[in-house]
Design a protein around this nucleic acid. Structure first.
Lengths: 151, 151
DNA sequence: AGTTGACCTCAAGCGTACTTGAGGTTGTGG
DNA sequence: CCACAACCTCAAGTACGCTTGAGGTCAACT
């Protein structure tokens, strides 16, 4: 039989995982990466404050917007750690993504429109095509996987 | 002194790399992945047909649209290999991305609008928030890096 | 002929975001 | 008190899109 959900206001790893819709391994990972915190019981098991549920929700939502964990961590670092985050705190963070999202949509729309222009000419000829040579707006790459659209 | 650019209509790896704006190692990679081809000289060095320049351009543009190499390869497989690709061929491929792009823009706009709604409430409370529980539209993950927004 | 830069292959590494597995511990219901 | 689920740690694996490095070859110019 499975252990009953503890009556405490704290959440066990399993509970948090189910309620946040992520794997326990992901919680471990988020903790290692400094995105969430936990307290330990005498037996070294994790217990999460209920607020962590909201934190994880924020992480998942932000990821679905295409934002990297690094940027999410930065955002979360902006939350007060002396008190529990308020609605206003969360709203502030969400609003921050808004401009991000707008920029990303703009970029995609510009690309789409340029692509429309190019469909007619079949160019991609490196010289005349606005789509090629995206250096100006889209470069800044470096090693690792390309994230041109994401983040 | 650097070797003069060969007068032939074929391109050396270095020439192609410079003109396409990618590293030689990337060309090797694309070839291993079946995205481009090359002929070999007697001395086992690569020579690229000029068309490969356009191919690489297409790859880069497509990547900037957030499309994975796997999907790009599929698209390129749609080109005729008995003759040199025409403008119409390239236009057909580009047009294919268009619907992709539209879908992605739509998705981002929906997310943005929902985010707007959520900024007021500061919710992300798992129950009432439309942003959370994106399972319906955004899941289908599995192992590996998340690609929710891309591709 | 020798120098030198461009080229070759193959293996390993990197960053992101996790998962999987091995091997061991904790803690609750029966 | 003991079984057994849930927990723990640490190392390694996965997918993508490349880059980097080692160790060696090729070819143009002088």
């Amino acid at each position: 039989m499975s252990r009953a959900p503890s009556k405490h206001s704290e959440l066990t790893p399993g509970e948090l995982a189910v309620r946040a819709g992520v794997a326990v391994s992901a919680l471990h990972f988020y903790e290692r990466e400094g995105l969430i915190e936990s307290r330990r019981t005498a037996g070294n098991q994790r217990r999460y404050h209920r607020d962590v549920l909201r934190r994880v929700a924020f992480i998942r939502v932000s990821q679905s917007l295409g934002i990297s964990l690094a940027r999410i961590r930065e955002a979360l670092d902006g939350l007060p750690d002396n008190r529990v985050a308020t609605k206003a705190d969360w709203a502030r963070l969400s609003a921050h993504w808004r401009s991000d999202l707008d920029a990303r949509i703009d970029q995609l729309e510009r690309l789409r429109d340029q692509l429309d222009g190019c469909i007619g000419c079949g160019c991609l000829s490196l010289k005349s095509c606005a789509l090629y040579n995206p250096q100006d707006e889209l470069s800044a790459n470096g090693p690792g996987p390309r994230r041109l659209v994401r983040s």
